[in-house]
Design a protein around this nucleic acid. Structure first.
Length: 421
RNA sequence: GGAGAGGUGGCAGAGUCUGGUCGAAUGCGCCGCACUCGAAAUGCGGUGUUCGCGUAAGUGAACCGGGGGUUCGAAUCCCUUCCUCUCCGCCA
C-alpha cells in the first residue's frame, strides 16, 4: 500500500513511476475522495467535540439535581447528525482504502525501465553449460523411465498440474527440501518456520495477493480461507500488526511449504512435465529489516539462493527484472534461472524481491526508534522452488544410459549417487 | 460438535454488577533527573497508537479483541463475530 500523504504531495511523480510497470493508474479520483474524507472528518470531529463538552455539562447538572432537558434535546439532534456523518465517513474511508489497496507498488529508481520481460537485464551467471556427446533428453521422459514421476496418475487423482512423485522421485524431492533448509539454517542464519497452508483474507491482503490476484489463488468458501501460493504469505503475516524491536533486525525466516496456484489464464504455456504446476514445493526465505539495510540484505538473500545452486553445481543466470516484469508488490526483483539442457531453456527457480515498506504498510508491521514509529522493509526470495530444480538436476545430470547422477551434496540425503533402472 | 470462563496500555492487573471529571487505579518495566567515586537501593518527573487542523508550540477526534446497537453520554448495558483457556464428545 502506498502512503496517501505521499500521494497528496506528489501525485504526478508517483503516477509516472507506477506507470512504468505498464498500465494506467488514476490517482485523481483517489485524491478527490481523500479530500472529501478529510473535510467531513474535520466537521464531524468538531461536532463530537461539542457533544463531548455538553455531555460533561449535562453530567454536572444532573449531579447538582438541575434540569438538563434542553441540552439533552439539542444533543439528540446533534447526535443524529453525527451518526449520519459517521456512516458516510466510514463508507468514504472504505472506498479510499480499497482504491489504495488496488494500487501497485512503484518500482525502485534502480529498477531498469522496460516494456516487457525482454528488457530484463542479465546481472551475472555461474557455472558451465554442460556438453553432451548424445542428444540430451527432456526431464519428463527420463523421470518416467526411472519411475520417479507419474503425472498420469497425478492427473487421475487431482487433475493436471498436480504431480505425483514416486520412488526415487519422491526421495529426491524430500532430499532437496532437507538440503536447502539445512543449508539456510546452518550456514545463512535463518530460523526455520513451518507455516499453515491456509490463510484468511487479512493475511492474503497483507502481502498483496488480495484484492487484485484473487483469481490466482484457491479459495475455500465454506471457511473463507485461501490456499497459500507461497510461504511468503503466512510467514510475512507472522508479524502483522506488530511493533518489532529494531534490536532484533534482521529477522530471518526460512520456510518449506507446499504452494498452490490456480495459474488461471496460463493454460498450455510451458506446461510440459514439471514446468508449471498447480501444486509444488518451495523453500522460501523471508526477512524483516531496517529500511536503511534492506537493499544490502536483499543482495545477501539473492546470494543465499545462489549458494543452493552452486552447491548443486547447476549453471544459472541472474536477471534484474525491468519495471514491466515486476510483480504487484515488488519495488525491485531479481530472478534466478537454471539452464535445462533437455527443455533447452532457462527456467526460473527463484524470485527475490524487495518490497520496501509496501507490504509492511498493508500488514502494519512497524518498528520503533528514537524518532518514532516506522514501517519495516520486507524482502523475500525462493531458496528455491523444487519442480524446476528437479528438472535441472535430471536434465543436467543425465547419462547416455538413461540414468542420472546425484549431485554430491545430495548423496547423503539420497543414500545413493545414481538413479538407474 | 456441546457446556462454561475470559479478552483492558510494553507486561501484570483493577475498573464492568450500580453508564458520566476513565485513555483508564496500582505494581513492574522503560526513559530522564537527584543522591553516589560508581552502582544498587531510594526519591522526583516522564512514558501508547492512529487520523485531522497548525510552520510550530499546541490542539481536536478515535481507540479497553473486531463489527453493530441503546443513550445527551459506553471499557461499563444489549446483539453479533473472532480468539484464548477449562471440561465433555470426536479424532490423526
Amino acid at each position: 500500500m502506498l502512503d496517501i500523504k505521499e500521494i497528496r504531495i506528489n501525485p504526478e511523480l508517483i503516477r509516472q513511476r507506477i506507470e512504468t510497470k505498464n498500465g494506467k493508474i488514476d490517482l485523481e479520483a483517489l485524491l478527490v475522495l481523500d479530500n472529501k474524507r478529510r473535510t467531513l472528518s474535520k466537521e464531524t470531529d468538531d461536532m463530537k467535540y461539542q457533544r463531548n463538552t455538553v455531555s460533561q455539562a449535562i453530567s454536572l447538572k444532573k449531579r447538582n439535581k438541575e434540569d438538563a432537558a434542553a441540552e439533552i434535546a439539542d444533543m439528540q439532534k446533534l447526535s443524529t447528525r453525527i451518526k449520519e456523518n459517521d456512516i458516510e465517513l466510514s463508507s468514504l474511508s472504505q472506498k479510499l482504502k480499497n482504491q489504495l489497496l488496488a494500487i501497485p507498488n512503484y518500482p525502485s529508481l534502480n529498477t531498469p525501465v522496460g516494456k516487457s520481460e525482454a528488457d530484463n537485464v542479465e546481472i551475472s551467471s555461474w557455472g558451465v553449460i554442460p556438453k553432451f556427446d548424445f542428444e540430451p533428453k527432456d526431464h519428463l521422459g527420463i523421470a518416467e523411465k526411472l519411475k520417479m514421476l507419474d503425472l498420469k496418475r497425478g492427473a487421475k487423482i487431482s487433475g493436471s498440474g498436480f504431480p505425483l512423485y514416486t520412488g526415487w522421485g519422491a526421495r529426491l524431492e524430500r532430499a532437496l527440501i532437507n538440503f536447502m533448509l539445512d543449508l539456510h539454517i546452518t550456514e545463512h542464519g535463518y530460523t526455520e518456520i513451518f507455516p499453515p497452508y491456509l490463510v484468511h483474507s487479512d493475511s492474503a491482503t497483507g502481502t498483496g495477493q488480495l484484492p487484485k490476484l484473487a483469481d490466482d489463488m484457491y479459495y475455500l468458501k465454506e471457511d473463507d480461507l485461501w490456499l497459500i501460493p507461497t510461504a511468503e504469505v503466512p510467514v510475512t503475516n507472522m508479524h502483522r500488526d506488530e511493533v518489532l524491536s529494531s534490536a532484533d533486525f534482521p529477522i530471518k525466516y526460512v520456510a518449506f511449504s507446499g504452494c498452490f496456484r490456480r495459474e488461471a489464464g496460463s493454460y498450455g504455456k510451458d506446461t510440459r512435465g514439471l514446468q508449471r504446476l498447480h501444486q509444488f514445493n518451495k523453500v522460501e526465505m523471508v526477512q524483516f529489516v531496517h529500511p536503511d539495510k534492506s537493499y544490502e540484505a536483499w543482495e545477501t538473500l539473492i546470494g543465499n539462493a545462489e549458494t543452493v545452486l552452486q552447491k548443486l553445481e547447476l549453471p544459472y543466470r541472474v536477471l534484474e527484472l525491468c519495471t514491466a516484469d515486476l510483480s504487484f508488490a515488488a519495488a525491485r526483483c531479481r530472478d534466478i534461472e537454471l539452464w535445462a539442457p533437455g527443455c533447452k531453456k532457462w527456467l526460473e527457480v527463484s524470485s527475490c524481491s524487495n518490497f520496501e515498506d509496501f507490504q509492511a504498510r498493508r500488514a502494519n508491521i512497524r518498528y520503533k526508534d528514537d524518532s518514532g514509529m516506522h514501517f519495516v522493509h520486507t524482502i523475500n526470495g525462493s531458496g528455491v522452488a523444487t519442480p524446476r530444480l528437479m528438472i535441472a538436476i535430471i536434465e543436467n545430470y543425465q547419462q547416455s544410459d538413461g540414468s542420472i547422477l546425484i549431485p554430491k551434496v545430495l548423496q547423503s540425503y539420497m543414500g545413493t549417487d545414481k538413479i538407474q533402472i
